[in-house]
């Protein structure tokens, strides 16, 4: 990255807000506390490992998705942005990029810590980004898309939260059906790394990129964002 663009990224990082930057580490911190509680309650090695994996595959992507839709919706001077020659998609992209970077950095550090301490229960460490990156891309893409289509943070976060909760509660049903299995978000922690795992990850990445593409298309008409309802 050219050094003259660094201040711009620093500025966008501040515009993204402290809550967005704090959401990924907070999600992993909560996971860590839960794992400590579980371990102190006498749980086995496998159970604690599964819980740590769930934090990476389920809780972190949810946190990033929720923070992303807030970044899109909370711009208080959007009218000013739209009057500038810079494309708004680029501006939002930088803010969401900061969030993705924070999320990825937290995930890598968390994975390294878990692996080094011997609690890692996921795939080969080199394939570990496939645990968190596909669900993060998918959930974030969907949340932002819903936020833009409905122009409501409440609607987007409610629907995505219910979907997340539904996949956790009815994991068996999602895995049992041929057409839902490739899009099941928590295959690593709920099913394991076996046959179909890579297909599932690739399907999530593909559909996640599709959500992102639609978001970029919608951002070609950014004035549609001007009537959002709440933070």
């Amino acid at each position: 990255m050219p050094t003259h663009r660094l201040p711009l990224w620093r500025y966008e990082s501040r515009r993204a807000g402290w809550a967005a930057r704090a959401a990924p580490p907070a999600a992993l911190l909560v996971t860590l506390v839960m794992a400590l509680l579980t371990a102190s309650g006498g749980a086995g090695h496998d159970q604690v490992g599964q819980l740590l994996l769930t934090g990476l595959e389920a809780i972190l992507p949810l946190a990033v998705g929720m923070a992303a839709v807030t970044i899109v919706a909370r711009d208080g001077c959007r009218e000013l942005q739209l009057s500038l020659p810079a494309r708004y998609a680029g501006t939002l992209g930088r803010r969401l990029g900061v969030l993705a970077l924070v999320g990825a950095a937290c995930a890598v550090a968390f994975t390294a810590g878990v692996w080094l301490s011997g609690w890692w229960a996921g795939p080969n460490i080199l394939a570990s980004p496939l645990v968190w990156a596909p669900p993060m891309l998918w959930l974030t893409g969907l949340t932002v898309l819903l936020g833009m289509l409905g122009r409501s943070v409440v609607l987007a976060t409610s629907v995505v939260s219910a979907l997340w909760l539904g996949e956790q509660l009815f994991a068996g049903s999602f895995v049992a059906l041929d057409w839902t299995r490739p899009f099941f978000l928590f295959t690593t922690s709920r099913v394991g790394v076996g046959e179909g795992w890579l297909t599932n990850r690739l399907a999530l990445v593909g559909s996640g990129l599709l959500f992102v593409a639609v978001v970029v298309l919608l951002l070609r008409r950014p004035h549609l964002l001007l009537t959002e309802e709440e933070e």
């Binding site: 809550a19 704090a22 959401a23 907070a26 839960m34 509680l37 949810l62 929720m66 976060t157 997340w164």
Partner: peptide, 27 residues
């Protein structure tokens, strides 16, 4: 105190943990 986006994330996690997670799985 913790901002709306952070609350929303923690609330969903809490709702699953505090209502639907089997008590034998973790505290």
């Amino acid at each position: 105190v913790i901002s709306a986006p952070l609350f929303r994330v923690l609330f969903v996690g809490y709702w699953f943990w505090g209502n639907m997670l089997p008590p034998e799985f973790l505290p």
